[in-house]
Design a protein around this nucleic acid. Sequence first.
DNA 1: ATAGCCTTGATT
DNA 2: AATCAAGGCTAT
Length: 449
Amino acid sequence: MCPVCGDTVSGYHYGLLTCESCKGFFKRTVQNNKSYTCSESQDCRIDKTQRKRCPFCRFQKCLRVGMRLEAVRADRMRGGRNRFGPMYKRHRALKQQKNALLQSHGLKAEYTPDLISPPTRTPFNFTNININTTPSDTITSDLHTQTHSGYSFYQNEPRHESPQYYHVSPLGALYSPVHAMAVIGDCSGIPGIPQAQCSGSFSAQGPALPHLLVEFLRCELDELQVRSKIIGRLEQMQGEGGSGGYGATHMYLMVDQMLFYIVEWARGSVFFKELKVSDQMKLLHHCWCELLVLDMVSRQLQHGRQGSLVLVTGQEVDLPALVSPAGPLLRTLVQKGQDLVESFRKLQVDRNEVVCFKFLILFNTDVKHVENQSFVENVKEQVHRALLEYTLCAYPQFLDKFDKLLLCWSDLCALSTLAEEYLCSKDICGEVPCNNLLNELLHAKHHSM
DNA sequence: ATAGCCTTGATT
DNA sequence: AATCAAGGCTAT
C-alpha cells in the first residue's frame, strides 16, 4: 500500500514505494514549484478517495513519509538510474529478510491495511476516576527541519551529462519530519527515511522510526508529570486517611495510582481508543498487571541499581530490607523481578521496544469475548511488524533480538501472574484498601474466569 | 489537475 | 538484453 494514500504501490518512486498517482502528484508539485494552501487545519486525512481534496496536505504527507525532493530531476532528464538504486536494492533485501522472519513467527508477509478509523468518543466508567487529573499527552519526539540545499545527488562528481537534481520547494521549509531520540544503529539506505536522519555517520539523532512506533511514542504520558501527580495524590491521601509512613498500604495506594495512569494511557492511545468501551475494559482487565510489571521493570532499567527498587514516586526501596520480613511469595516475586530486569538489561531493551511491548500486551488476542476480535488481531500483527522492523533497523548486528524480546515477554507474563496472585492474596486478607481501581481490577479478572 | 500508460536510458 | 525508476503524454 502507498504510504501516502493507501492505493496500490507501483514501484519505488522518489525514495520509497508509492502508488502511481502520488508519484505523479509529487513530480508535478516539485517540477512546477507549486504551492498549495489548506482550507482546513492542515491535517486532512489522505486516502485513495480523498487524496484530490487537499493537495497541501497530500504534499505534506508525501514529505512526511519520506519522498525525496532531490529525486526530482532539475534537468528533466529521462531514464537511467539515480543513486537510490542501491538503496532500493538494500530495502528489497531487508524486506525479504523481514518477511522470512515474520513467516517464521506465523505472520502473513503481506501488509495489512491501516486500521486507524474515525475516532469515537465514549464515556468510560472505571471506579475511582478522578476527573481533575488528566495528564496531557507529551510529544516525545523532536521536530526538525530538513535542509535540501547544496547536495549533490550523485555519488561521483556530477558530470555535465548527468541530470542535475533539484530542488528547494517553497513547501520544503514546512517539512518537519518527526525524529526519535536516542536510537542506536544505522538505517542508512532504508527508503522512506530521509537522508539527514539516516546517514549513520554521526547520528546523535538516530534513524527514523517505523511510522507506528512514532504514533506509539506520541501516546506516552509524561513521566515527570505522572510522578508529581502521584506524589501529590499520595500526600493528599495520607493527610486524609491518617495511615502515614511507608507501609504496605502506601504501596497499594501507589500501585492503585500507577494503574490509574496505565488506564489513562491506554484510553488515550492510538487504536485502543477506537475500541468500544466494553472491549477496552475486557482488554485492560486482562493485562493491567502485565503493564504494571513492565512499567516497574522498565523503570529499573532507566534508573535502578541492583539491590534496590525505584518506584514511580522516585523513592528508592532497599530490596534486602523489603524481602527479609516478607513471605515466600513476595520473595520469589522480587527474585523473579530482579531476574527479569537483568535479562532486559542484558538484551539492551530500549525505550522504543518497551513502548511496543506495551501495545503487544494491551492487544492480547487471547482475551475472550472481545467483540472486535479481528481489530485486536490486526493491531497485534502491526505491532509485531513494527517491533521487528525497529529491532532489525536499530540493532542490525543483533538479528535475533526480536526473538529474544518475545522470550522476555513470556517471562514477564509469568511474573505478572505471580504478582497478581500475590495482590489477590493480600486483597483477600483485607490488606488492600477498598474502593479503588486495584480492587476493581483484581475482582474483574476473577468474575470473568 | 489527475492518474494511468508510455518512453527513456544507466545500471546490472 | 532485461530491469525499472525517472520523465512524458493524454483522456478524463
